[in-house]
Design a protein around this nucleic acid. Structure first.
Length: 419
RNA sequence: GGAGAGGUGGCCGAGCUGGUCUAAGGCGUACGCCUGCUAAGCGUAUGUGUGGGUAAAACCGCACCGAGGGUUCGAAUCCCUCCCUCUCCGCCA
C-alpha cells in the first residue's frame, strides 16, 4: 500500500494512478473517510491524554493515603466518554482501511499510459519459426509421444489439470533443475517454501483483498494455496527490520502454483496454455530503494537468460498502466514464441513493487539514516508449462521427435532427442 | 490430539498480591571524557508506529510487554479465546 501521508498530500497523483490502473476503488470515499478517521482519532487521543493525567493524580493521592472518591468519579465520566469515542474511531478506521487496502501502487513515469494495446515491445531475441504448413500443437505432440495426459487429469480433477508422463515428466524435472542452477549461479539463494499461507501473508503481497476469487482456500484452517512462490518468498521477511548491510537479498524458489482462473473461463482452453496447477521457478529481490530500478533491469535479464540458453525466441514487453498488476509500479513480461499454437506466450512477469508490498508486509531495513521500507521485486524464471509448450512445438521434427537444446542435455542424461 | 512450562525493548532478564511502569538491572551499540596505544573506568544517549507541529528540525500527544477481546475509574500485571516455542505422552510419513 501507499503511505497514508503520501495519499493525503498527493491527491491528484493518486486519483490519476487509480484511473490509469483501471481500479474500481472509490478514491473520493477514501479521502472522506480518512478525514473522519483522523478527526475521531484526534478527539479520542486528546481525551486519553486527560485520562492519563487524571490517573497519575489518583495514583499519587492513593499512595499518600488521601481520599480519591471525587477523582475516581471524574475518571469514570472521562472513561465512559472515551469508550464511545473509541468505538467511533474504530468504526471510522475500519471503513477507511477497507478502501485503503484497495488503492493500487502508482505506475512509474516510464510506463506507457493505456490498456493492453499500449504495451510496448522493448526488444526481441531469436528468430520466431513461422512454418509454411501448420505444425503440431503441443497437445497433439504430447499424445503422440505419450508424455501428456489431459483426459486422465480431467477425470480426477476437472478441466485445467494435466499429467506429465515419462519423458514429459523428465523434461519438466530437467527444466526446473536447469533454471534453479542458473539462478543460483546468478546470485540467488535457493529456498523451499510453504505452499499454504495465511490471510496476512496474502494481504502482504497484495493478492488480498482484490484477488480473493482467484485463489484456492482451505477452509478448515483458513489457509490459501499460493498462486506463486512470490507470496511465500516475499513474506519470508514479513514484519522484520533487516540491517542495511543485509541488502540486497535475492532468493529463488521452485513451487507449484494454484490458480482458480475464475475470470478467464473459455480463454486459452486447449492443451496446457492455462491451467489451475503448474510449476514455476520464481525470483524475489529485496533491494534498497535507490537500487530497485536498476535491479528490475538485471532481474529481467536474469529471467531472459533462461530463454536464451534454451534457444527459444522471445520478446520483452513493457506493460502499459492499464495492464499492470495491482501492486506493481512497472513490469516487463517475457513472451516466448511457440510455433504450434502460433502465439507469443507469457512465461514471466518481472516487476518492481517499490515499497508497496514492503509497507503492507512490514519489511524494513535500518541503516545509519534510520529505518525505511525496502523495495521488493519479483520475476518468474520461468513458468514451466508454457516453456514446455515452446520446447515441444519449436523443437519438433517432421518425424515427430523433439530436439533437446544443448543447455538442457546434461539434465536429461545427455540425450539430444526425445521420443 | 493430551498434560505441563513459557512468549517483556537489538539481546538477556526483573516486574505479574492492578495505580509515579514514563518497564528495573545487565549486555550490546553510538558519542564524549579519561588514557603512550588497546583494554578497563566514568558520563550521556539508544525502539517502532501514528496524529499534530515545522521550510526542515526541535517539540507535543497517543499506542505498542505474542495477537485479539473482556473486567476495572485505571491492566505488562486479573479473566477469556487464539497463535507460537519448549518438555513429556499419544498418533503418524
Amino acid at each position: 500500500m501507499l503511505d497514508r501521508k503520501y495519499i493525503r498530500e498527493n491527491r491528484a497523483a493518486v486519483t490519476r494512478a487509480v484511473a490509469l490502473k483501471r481500479e474500481a476503488v472509490d478514491i473520493e470515499a477514501y479521502y472522506d473517510k480518512d478525514a473522519r478517521r483522523r478527526a475521531a482519532l484526534r478527539e479520542m487521543e486528546d481525551l486519553q491524554a486527560a485520562a492519563n493525567a487524571e490517573n497519575k493524580g489518583i495514583a499519587a493521592r492513593k499512595k499518600a493515603g488521601e481520599d480519591t472518591t471525587d477523582a475516581i468519579a471524574r475518571m469514570k465520566r472521562i472513561s465512559d466518554r472515551l469508550k464511545e469515542l473509541r468505538a467511533v474511531a474504530a468504526a471510522m478506521e475500519e471503513e477507511a482501511d477497507a478502501l485503503y487496502l484497495r488503492i493500487p501502487n502508482v505506475p512509474h513515469e516510464s510506463v506507457p499510459e493505456g490498456g493492453e494495446e499500449a504495451n510496448t515491445v522493448m526488444r526481441e531475441w531469436g528468430e520466431p519459426w513461422r512454418p509454411e504448413r501448420a505444425v503440431r500443437p503441443h497437445w497433439e505432440l504430447g499424445r503422440e509421444l505419450d508424455i501428456l495426459y489431459l483426459e486422465e487429469a480431467a477425470r480426477m480433477s476437472g478441466s485445467g489439470f494435466f499429467v506429465l508422463a515419462g519423458d514429459g515428466a523428465l523434461l519438466e524435472r530437467a527444466l526446473v533443475n536447469f533454471m534453479l542452477d542458473l539462478h543460483v549461479e546468478q546470485g540467488y539463494r535457493e529456498l523451499i517454501v510453504p505452499y499454504l499461507v495465511n490471510r496476512d501473508a496474502m494481504t502482504g503481497t497484495g493478492q488480498l483483498p482484490k484477488l480473493a476469487e482467484d485463489m484456492y482456500r482451505v477452509e478448515a484452517d483458513d489457509l490459501y494455496l499460493i498462486p506463486t512462490a512470490e507470496v511465500s518468498i516475499t513474506n519470508l521477511h514479513r514484519q522484520e527490520t533487516l540491517s542495511a548491510e543485509l541488502l540486497p537479498r535475492r532468493y529463488v524458489a521452485f513451487s507449484p502454483c494454484f490458480r482458480r482462473e475464475a475470470g478467464s473461463a473459455g480463454k486459452d482452453t486447449r492443451g496446457i496454455l492455462r491451467v489451475h496447477q503448474f510449476h514455476k521457478v520464481e525470483m524475489v529481490r529485496f533491494e534498497r530503494p535507490e537500487d530497485s530500478w536498476a535491479a528490475l533491469e538485471t532481474l529481467t535479464r536474469d529471467a531472459e537468460e533462461v530463454l536464451r540458453r534454451l534457444e527459444l525466441p522471445y520478446r520483452v514487453v513493457m506493460l502499459a498502466t492499464g495492464d499492470l498488476s495491482f501492486a506493481a509500479a512497472k513490469c516487463y513480461d517475457l513472451e516466448v514464441w511457440s510455433a504450434g499454437v502460433g502465439k507469443w506466450l507469457e512465461v514471466s512477469s518481472c516487476s518492481n513493487f517499490t515499497d508497496f508490498q514492503a509497507r503492507r508486509a512490514g519489511i524494513r531495513f535500518k541503516g545509519p539514516g534510520g529505518s525505511a521500507f525496502v523495495h521488493t521485486l519479483n520475476g518468474s524464471g520461468l513458468a514451466l508449462p508454457r516453456v514446455m509448450i515452446a520446447l515441444l512445438e519449436n523443437g519438433q521434427t517432421p518425424e515427430g521427435r523433439v530436439r533437446v537444446p544443448a543447455a538442457l542435455r546434461p539434465y536429461v542424461g545427455g540425450r539430444e532427442m526425445l521420443g
